[in-house]
């Protein structure tokens, strides 16, 4: 059961194609797993479409040659069988099938640090970075805070932190200065988007601050 969802603002921005790629991937993958948010998003898109149609437009633009160019092409006469590019990955001895939003990323390069494996997915402009993270079972990520926000979409497995237990499909948005220590009993695969490096805060794990750079 999914308990954590994107805010309505995020759904609106996603539906309007106004999010950076890294976040749109997260929202899209969440929608694939969450029928409630899919229903809401369909309504949002219908509203955006209505607004788009209600725009004031000038009719003084000459498009005539464009129509001729379009008619040079032949329309498809039937629905072609859908090509489904399923992106299967293998990490730390586990096999997973990624959501459709990840179909494009077939060339993931994994690097490991102890129980944590990471593959960079996108590096957007504006300093946003997104990675797939795999954490082995019975492992913790040392206590850390974020300078910016951290979005975690749980793709497989479960994990918990000071705030609760998270399940597959949960869309967990943390703003800066929130300290947490995620732990996973089952092992888990997440998609994480951050806009600034992690900072490890407690005791010896401060020595791990370079790890923040790895995960980030």
């Amino acid at each position: 059961m999914i308990k954590y969802h994107p805010t309505q603002e995020l759904l609106i921005s996603h539906s309007g194609a106004q999010l950076p790629l890294s976040l749109s991937i997260a929202v899209s993958a969440h929608l694939e797993m969450c029928s409630e948010c899919t229903t809401v998003t369909k309504k949002i898109t219908a509203q955006q479409s209505a607004l788009f149609e209600a725009q004031d437009v000038s009719n003084n633009v000459n498009f005539s040659s464009m129509l001729d160019k379009i008619f040079e092409h032949k329309p498809d006469l039937q629905v072609e069988p859908k090509k489904t590019a399923i992106n299967r990955i293998s990490v730390a001895g586990n096999n997973y099938q990624l959501p459709r939003a990840f179909s494009h990323f077939t060339d993931l390069k994994w690097s490991s640090f102890g129980a944590i494996s990471r593959a960079r997915v996108v590096k957007d402009t504006d300093n946003i970075r997104a990675s797939l993270l795999h954490i082995d079972k019975n492992s913790a990520i040392p206590s850390h805070t974020h300078k910016g926000y951290e979005l975690t979409l749980l793709l497989e497995g479960t994990f918990s932190d000071e705030n609760g237990v998270y399940n597959k499909g949960d869309f967990i948005w943390l703003d800066n200065d929130l300290e947490h220590t995620p732990f996973t009993k089952t092992g888990c695969l997440c998609y994480a988007v951050q806009d600034a490096p992690l900072r490890f805060v407690s005791g010896i794990s401060q020595a791990l601050n370079p790890l923040g750079q790895l995960i980030y």
């Binding site: 464009m66 160019k69 379009i70 329309p75 498809d76």
Partner: peptide, 12 residues
């Protein structure tokens, strides 16, 4: 142009 071309080609 590209949107309307897609509409023309993919209307089916």
């Amino acid at each position: 142009q590209e949107t309307m071309l897609l509409v023309w080609r993919k209307a089916v």
